[in-house]
Design a protein around this nucleic acid. Sequence first.
DNA 1: TAGATTGTTAATCGATTAACAATC
DNA 2: TAGATTGTTAATCGATTAACAATC
Lengths: 221, 221
Amino acid sequence: MCAAKRKPSDDPLAVPAAVIGRLSLYLRELSHFVRAGNLTTNSDELSTRLGLSAAQVRKDLAYFGQFGRPGIGYRCEELIGAIRSILGTDRRWPVLLAGVGNLGRALLGYRGFVPQGFEIVAAVDVISEKVGTEVEGVRVEHLDGLAEIVRREGIAVAILAVPAGSAQAVADRLVAAGVRGIVNFAPVTLSLPEETSLLGVDLAIQLEQVAFSVANRQLPR
Amino acid sequence: MCAAKRKPSDDPLAVPAAVIGRLSLYLRELSHFVRAGNLTTNSDELSTRLGLSAAQVRKDLAYFGQFGRPGIGYRCEELIGAIRSILGTDRRWPVLLAGVGNLGRALLGYRGFVPQGFEIVAAVDVISEKVGTEVEGVRVEHLDGLAEIVRREGIAVAILAVPAGSAQAVADRLVAAGVRGIVNFAPVTLSLPEETSLLGVDLAIQLEQVAFSVANRQLPR
DNA sequence: TAGATTGTTAATCGATTAACAATC
DNA sequence: TAGATTGTTAATCGATTAACAATC
């Protein structure tokens, strides 16, 4: 009746989340290399730049195929294409923004999304003064129109930038409207169906992590 | 002549970075519990809420001491105080913002920092039209005044929200001015002295991670 | 007391690293 | 060819989990 829940470890094809995180970093470095005019790179250069081991870079990439040539290394453009294809960013992702506050507005104006394949094509809010306005070329619509917007724009991924108090309710509505992945900037833990991808970005927590590290860093001896 | 570099594993007191990350999540949940009127909680409740195991919660906390009572659990307020003390956020951290663009402005207006002990008390930029203005009650000063600002305000931690192209140069100046930890929002890998704490938050990468997860999620069978 | 839940140890699991044959 | 660097296997390391005596 109820299918057994598969843990990640049940799936022999499962790739550790940390590997996917590093894939994004490799992609970013490779773009810099290309901009610097480099045609090829290798696991040593890539790993040194990122503070990893060369073996780790090779192993990470090996989860997905053979992208390098012994004795030569990796062709930057080729590897960029491969990683984009793995991440799924070789195509364009229309993104919905929920919550046009301070942070939401900043995200609407952020230039870094489009080159990576993401474009915020719609924004929703509940404040009537905001609804109907246009911010950074994107029309702000009412939250109530969510399902129609998601269908109209073919949206799979949303950014949640609403106040903490309404984050869970809005997240539920996003899921109900068909959104399949959410980047959540509200400082709350969301409960969502397992099949919804969720990544939390808590700005205060980022500062906390650095503060701990500063406070506990041993001084060089 | 050159002191041997200590790897984290050399230090028997070293706590895994992942543990510190979860500490922030425990703190956030505990605040919610308190707001909901709960006096005590336990490793089961905390872990379920966060999708972890109860053993992990207990083990994480055990790195730092004994905060619970067998048969009872943890007193929320008490544990909050303990975690704040561990993270170093039981005191106020004055924060410097470098880069008053779209994102910088949003961060200046973000209400979530102060309750966690962080206050942006100064902002710097290089654009002369911005210098001298006041944003969200914070005066924007010129980057050239960095060292004096850091000294004057007693700043240890900075947020870097400048364009990618100038991030490394500005980061170098932050370090030279005495900043000891940086949260970097520019989509570049920074090279900084080992003793500087660094955390990168790349907004496009957050979306990439969710996109991968959405694209590769197995549909429920 | 009986029930609940901790802190901690030992066992398991998974991820990273080292090493090297294959090969450009 | 000699040198460089990959992909991959086996060894190591570290983190998570399970289990349970201690104890509120």
